[in-house]
């Protein structure tokens, strides 16, 4: 593998490591993405009726079959 050379006129092909996106740039996306993904998973998989909010099981009932078939605990 050719090592990263700052000049643009290097070899014709690009070494994979040249493509790495800096962690500083990715971190906020990953944090937000993880939080959003977790909120949706919690909402789908449980919360209403299972963990909190005794009344109001609308979401819980609505996505009921998806929860069973996607392997989340139910019943």
């Amino acid at each position: 593998m050719a090592h990263a050379i700052p000049t643009p006129a290097a070899t014709g092909s690009v070494a994979p490591s040249d493509l790495a996106i800096p962690v500083r740039e990715l971190a906020p996306w990953l944090v937000l993405g993880a939080l959003f993904a977790l909120s949706v998973l919690v909402l789908i998989s449980s919360v209403q009726g299972a963990i909190t909010i005794p009344e109001g099981t609308a979401i819980h009932e609505w996505v009921h079959d998806g929860r069973h078939l996607l392997g989340f605990p139910c019943h």
């Binding site: 949706v40 998973l41 789908i44 009932e61 609505w62 996505v63 009921h64 998806g66 078939l69 996607l70």
Partner: peptide, 18 residues
């Protein structure tokens, strides 16, 4: 509703976030 639109809501939501 549970077996059609409800099921689709679940799989789409989980699919999109994953």
């Amino acid at each position: 509703a549970q077996s059609t639109v409800g099921l689709a809501t679940g799989t789409l939501a989980v699919g999109v976030v994953l």
